[in-house]
Design a protein around this nucleic acid. Structure first.
Length: 395
DNA sequence: CACGGCCA
DNA sequence: TGGCCGTGG
């Protein structure tokens, strides 16, 4: 899922595109978060004894707990999140792609089921693999966010694409996601690991798409083609094509059309394009996703006071959360909303006046910084090559 | 996953 | 102070 190995390519070929930092650096920023993806990871990770957390009626609460505490942490760091939910799965012209993938998903599920031998470990594995975000999970999280005063919007299709639209329009600073696909949808900035910088040791990464293209020496179309070649959500990968080959192919041939043509002729002894490989449709999904324009009313959002009684009723009464923890969480929401209003009043977020001279100065400084980074990165690359160190990197 | 409590 | 581990619902 997602684009495998894209991150390591960017790290190697366009290190200037990745800025690393801590969550404090994000203070005061608005970010768009792919809600459905977050919910999915909560359903998988928030467990006790291998089982999802539940309320007294036996209904899952893992997604609510994950979303509640993660959002609190984000807000507590002065970040203003807007959550974006998936709408319908993307419709392709033929609708074939979606169907094909639904079948494939069912098939793997069946396989897992067949393999299941009944040991506790297998059951747990199985239950994790068959996790799907349901309509109810989404609705409950939306209810929670509403009560928390945190805005959300529902995308026509893919949340990633909608996040990118918001970021491009400047309605948020960045799209926050673990999924590199967001870059294909042309979000200017992608923030990865937004939440787990303090908890784990890993830094927050900001990936700047313009720098990615610059470093790779590609235009956006070639970049998307590269991503498709690396294996996107919609298409099977081409056997024997890994990151190195994919990069080489796009660089040598310039486009997927040419790559396919080459494989079908000169390259046919080594590579085979999967039988059904509608790459043009996949590309179309990245270039013309079904999204709401940023100036649309549905893309208006604001942060509001939490509904204290509503939250107590929903989380404590209906879902067995600890009242004490919920109340202290609410206090954080109130405090941070107040302090961000205060900051605005005091002109903390006052836009920097951009006179000609200032812009020039800023540009010069950015150039210098970039140059310095490039130098440093080059040296680091040399050093790591010399020592043959293989940096570990997993998505 | 996120938190808090515990211990070195 | 920070790393580990149990608990949350």
């Amino acid at each position: 899922m997602g684009i495998k190995q894209l991150f390591s390519i960017i790290r190697d070929e366009a290190p200037q595109a990745i800025k690393e930092g801590e969550i404090k650096n994000q203070f005061g920023r608005k970010v768009a978060i792919d809600a459905s993806m977050s919910i999915y990871s909560f359903l998988i990770a928030v467990r006790s004894g291998g089982e999802q957390l539940m309320n007294e009626s036996g209904e899952t609460t893992s997604h609510l707990l994950g979303m509640f505490y993660r959002t609190l942490r984000i807000v507590d760091n002065g970040i203003k999140p807007v959550y974006v939910f998936d709408g319908a799965p993307p419709k392709l012209k033929s609708g074939e792609l979606a169907k094909r993938f639904a079948r494939k998903a069912e098939a793997t599920e069946g396989l897992e089921e067949a393999k299941e031998t009944g040991t506790a470990e297998d059951v747990e594995k199985f239950s994790r693999r068959t996790v799907r975000v349901s309509r109810q999970h989404n609705a409950e999280c939306q209810q929670l966010l509403k009560l928390m005063g945190i805005p959300y919007i529902i995308a026509p299709t893919e949340a990633e694409a909608q996040c990118a639209v918001l970021a491009r329009a400047g309605k948020v600073y960045a799209a926050a996601s673990e999924d590199m696909d967001t870059l294909c949808f042309d979000s200017p900035i992608l923030i990865r690991h937004l939440t787990f910088s303090e908890a784990r040791k890993e830094p927050i990464q900001e990936i700047h798409v313009d720098k990615v293209l610059e470093g790779l020496g590609m235009d956006r179309k070639q970049f998307v083609d590269l991503c498709i070649l690396l294996g996107c959500d919609y298409l099977d990968p081409i056997p024997k094509v890994g990151p190195n080959t994919a990069l080489k192919m796009i660089r040598e041939h310039g486009s997927l059309e040419k790559v396919v043509e080459w494989i079908n002729n000169e390259g046919k002894n080594k590579y085979t394009i999967p039988e059904d490989w509608p790459y043009a449709d996949a590309r179309e999904l990245f270039f013309n996703p079904d999204v709401r324009p940023a100036d649309h009313a549905e893309c208006d959002f604001k942060w509001e006071q939490p509904d204290v009684e509503g939250l107590i009723k929903f989380l404590v009464v209906e879902n067995a959360f600890s009242e004490e923890r919920v109340r202290s969480g609410i206090a954080k929401l109130q405090k941070n909303l107040k302090s961000s209003q205060q900051a605005r009043l005091e002109g903390f977020f006052k836009p920097i006046p951009k006179t000609e001279a200032e812009i020039k100065n800023l540009k010069r400084k950015n150039e210098e910084k970039a140059e310095e980074k490039r130098k440093k990165a080059k040296e680091e690359k040399k050093a790591s090559k010399a020592s043959k160190a293989k940096p570990k990197m997993n998505s």
